[in-house]
Simulated assay, not measured.
Amino acid sequence: MNSVKVAINGYGVIGKRVADAVKAQDDMALVGVADVVDDYRIKTAPLLGVPVFAATAEAADRMRAAGIAPAGELEAMLAQADVVVDCTPKKVAAGNKQLYDALRIKSIFQGGESHTLTGHSFVAQANYATALGRDSTRVVSCNTTSILRTLGALKQAQLLKRARGTLIRRASDPWEAHQDGIMNTVVPEKSIPSHQGPDARTVDPDLDVVTIAVKAAHNSSHLHTWWVELAREATREEVLAAFRAAPRIAFVRTHDGLSALNSTVELMADLGRRRGDMWEVALWEDVLTVDGNQLYYCYQVFNQAIVIPETIDAIRALSGIETDAERSMAKTDRTLGLVRDFLSATDREPDA
């Protein structure tokens, strides 16, 4: 099988996880990762068998001084690649796109960039086909990804009319919580709707969705609460069946002791997941309530990992090595180990 050659620019929270995921695919080959840092974050890469490149000449000098031997600079890495996944900090990637375009390398960006950068935003179950063969796309943010997965499940079941959600966002990524954060307060976002609802419509323009967001004093993950007006009266069992039929949603239950964000994070570690990652939307089955055509539910978004499966699927779509969304998603989910129910002994792999 021919492998698509993948380069990763930025080896931070998302970049290192994309690197892990690319290495797990038999139809992809990791060329290497590039960055500007010379601390523990990039020093772990060679220990994991990941080739390191310097994003700039200055970074190369700092790396060598820190005992890191870069395999080359950014353009040398890109010259070997078919697709680059840009995981650089927010707003940096826009400048990088000019280089990728000049080198005629396909490029994938993260949700911190604007939709206008690529003219296409991506969630695999929603619009895989429209990404086929494109030169670039943008994998939407963690929260927007979760919105499209869950509302997409209801839409697929012809149950969705409109949705209104509240997002309780984590204050910072865990690794940088010592640098900034929020203590003993909750900060509302300044505008309603918050950006996630409009962002979801860049992928699926038909969604009638409004989001409100607040930032809270924790850093484990995000919590969403949703009110949905259904297209008709439905039973709780119908709604649960719609979520069960959708990819990348897994149920949790308060009666299992999974009653808060921290308990689910602990469960991922207990299950032995690499980096303790949760790629699925963790939806509380026993909290979900249906009253006629009114649906109420809540779920958890592990912001560090939820977009990783989407990124792998985006690589396949842009490169054209897989034209069928369901086949790509099934392969991605199988190789990463996604499940439909975290505590089911018979569900250790997703449906193929």
Rank of each mutant, 00 (worst) to 15 (best):
174 P>T: 02
202 T>L: 08
137 T>Q: 04
163 A>Y: 02
142 C>S: 15
200 A>P: 02
197 G>Y: 04
198 P>Y: 05
168 I>S: 13
127 N>F: 03
201 R>L: 11
156 Q>E: 06
93 A>M: 09
131 A>Y: 13
146 S>Y: 02
182 I>V: 15
94 A>M: 07
126 A>W: 02
103 L>K: 09
102 A>E: 14
148 L>C: 11
77 M>D: 07
80 Q>E: 14
204 D>P: 08
147 I>F: 01
104 R>T: 14
161 K>M: 02
110 Q>K: 03
177 A>K: 13
152 G>A: 07
94 A>K: 11
191 S>I: 13
194 S>P: 02
130 T>E: 12
148 L>S: 10
204 D>I: 11
121 S>A: 13
119 G>N: 03
175 W>V: 13
75 E>P: 05
152 G>P: 05
115 H>P: 04
163 A>Q: 09
183 M>W: 09
148 L>K: 05
206 D>N: 00
133 G>R: 02
86 D>F: 02
203 V>I: 13
168 I>Y: 13
161 K>A: 11
170 R>P: 03
190 K>Y: 12
129 A>V: 06
107 S>D: 06
129 A>N: 01
102 A>Y: 00
191 S>H: 11
207 L>A: 04
111 G>S: 10
89 P>Y: 04
206 D>G: 08
99 L>R: 15
142 C>D: 14
164 R>S: 03
167 L>G: 00
155 K>R: 14
197 G>F: 06
104 R>I: 00
95 G>R: 10
104 R>F: 00
206 D>V: 07
112 G>T: 02
134 R>A: 11
116 T>Q: 15
184 N>D: 15
159 L>T: 07
208 D>P: 05
112 G>R: 06
104 R>M: 04
154 L>Y: 08
127 N>S: 03
131 A>S: 15
70 P>E: 05
186 V>H: 04
191 S>R: 14
85 V>E: 02
125 Q>A: 06
195 H>K: 07
133 G>N: 09
194 S>D: 10
82 D>E: 14
100 Y>E: 10
76 A>T: 14
78 L>P: 00
159 L>K: 12
84 V>A: 10
178 H>A: 08
166 T>E: 09
84 V>T: 11
136 S>P: 01
92 V>F: 10
116 T>E: 15
131 A>R: 08
97 K>T: 00
145 T>I: 03
151 L>F: 14
166 T>A: 09
198 P>S: 05
193 P>C: 11
144 T>D: 07
178 H>F: 00
202 T>R: 11
133 G>E: 05
178 H>G: 00
191 S>D: 09
120 H>F: 14
117 L>E: 07
104 R>G: 11
149 R>G: 02
174 P>G: 01
113 E>Q: 12
204 D>Y: 00
178 H>L: 08
86 D>G: 04
129 A>G: 07
84 V>S: 09
124 A>E: 13
71 A>E: 15
155 K>V: 07
177 A>T: 07
101 D>V: 07
73 E>H: 06
92 V>Q: 05
144 T>A: 09
88 T>G: 12
193 P>D: 12
197 G>D: 11
202 T>W: 02
185 T>H: 12
107 S>L: 06
193 P>K: 01
137 T>C: 08
167 L>I: 15
88 T>H: 00
